[in-house]
Amino acid sequence: MDSDERLMQRVASGDLPAFRLLMERWEAAAKRYAYRVFGDYQSAEDAAQETFVRLYRAAGRYQPTAKFSTYFYTVLGNLCRDRLRATRRRTARGEVTEDAFVIDELVAGPEARRPDRRAEAAEDRALVRRVVAELPEKLMRAVSLREFEGLAYQEIADVMDANLGEVKTWIHRGRKKLAHRLRAVMAEEERT
């Protein structure tokens, strides 16, 4: 079976079946990652789509010395970061009124046979989503790449163009912040 790196080399020479195979392998990962950033299925789908387009167009510049996963998450991460910043800028200018992370209605649906339980589950998810979204970007990226994508610290360092010490710190601080925020938010929820 061809490695991802070999497939990328074939993509560089215009090999579409190789590109398709690469998409089959990485499509779900791209969408999951983007969803964590945007909290919105449609935005995640769009970002994943644009990532593969960029990968195809930049395949000629891909150096097989780098792991494909590193390259992939770098392209995807940069794209998500740019889009997120653009969204925040538009929000700040008043062009976007929705919070990019408020997607309960998409996740949960409007009607509930068991409103109490459904609302509870949706609230829990929304709460975690909110807390994750509140993390500083670097911490969020580092924690996501570790917790959800299972990347090694060195791979995360490569993706984020950082050194191992920074990655170690970001992941630890990210987890701690999440723990404290989750605890605080939950306590607040209980009080209200």
Partner: peptide
């Protein structure tokens, strides 16, 4: 925190690879 995140993630990011997506790309 890790287990909370992974449970949340499993509930929210269940994606399947689709032909439609690949066709659009």
């Amino acid at each position: 925190v890790g287990s909370t995140l992974r449970r949340w993630d499993a509930a929210e990011t269940r994606y399947l690879a689709t032909n439609a997506f690949r066709s659009r790309v």
